[in-house]
Simulated scan of single mutants.
Amino acid sequence: MSQSTTRNYINQSGTSNKFYNISLNAQAGGWVVQTHYGRMGTTGTNRVLQTVTSYSIAFAAFEAACNKRLARGYTLAGVSDNNPNSVPLATPMVRQALPAAKAEQLARFNSRTVHSIEVNPMSLFL
């Protein structure tokens, strides 16, 4: 079985409807950090962020990419992990980042202006 860790993020704030998957995969002689992202309903784009021989360097790049998504308003939607070397998802950094990202999204949602229209029912029959 190949070793891999994947985190799936979504951003559905405002008119956005995007996904972002970040993977850390073992390959011959090293590790590769890959992304797959795009709008929901499309095939998306694949990109290799980094290829290195050291797991610790690859994991640092993987965590940096994950934290960047959280900072940009994405929320963690799922995790797939079959890598015995990986750090569990519930690291202090992730535990702090998830509530902060959710609170930020809620604050943005609550700060939006709501426009209302008053309609005179009698004008509908004229």
Rank of each mutant, 00 (worst) to 15 (best):
M1H: 10
Q3H: 08
T5D: 06
T6K: 08
T6H: 06
I10Y: 14
Q12K: 11
Q12P: 02
Q12N: 13
S13Y: 10
S13W: 09
T15K: 12
N21T: 09
I22Q: 01
I22G: 00
I22F: 02
N25Y: 02
G29Y: 00
G30I: 00
Q34F: 00
T35F: 03
Y37S: 10
G38Y: 01
M40I: 15
T45L: 10
R47F: 10
V48R: 08
L49A: 04
L49F: 08
V52W: 03
S54G: 06
Y55A: 02
Y55H: 04
A58I: 03
A61Q: 11
R69S: 06
G78V: 02
S80D: 11
D81C: 08
N82W: 11
N85L: 13
S86M: 07
S86V: 13
P88H: 05
A90Q: 12
T91L: 05
P92G: 10
Q96L: 12
A97W: 04
A97E: 04
A97F: 04
P99M: 05
A100V: 14
A103I: 07
A103W: 04
F109H: 11
H115P: 08
V119K: 07
V119Q: 05
P121T: 03
M122H: 12
M122R: 12
L124A: 05
F125G: 05
L126N: 15
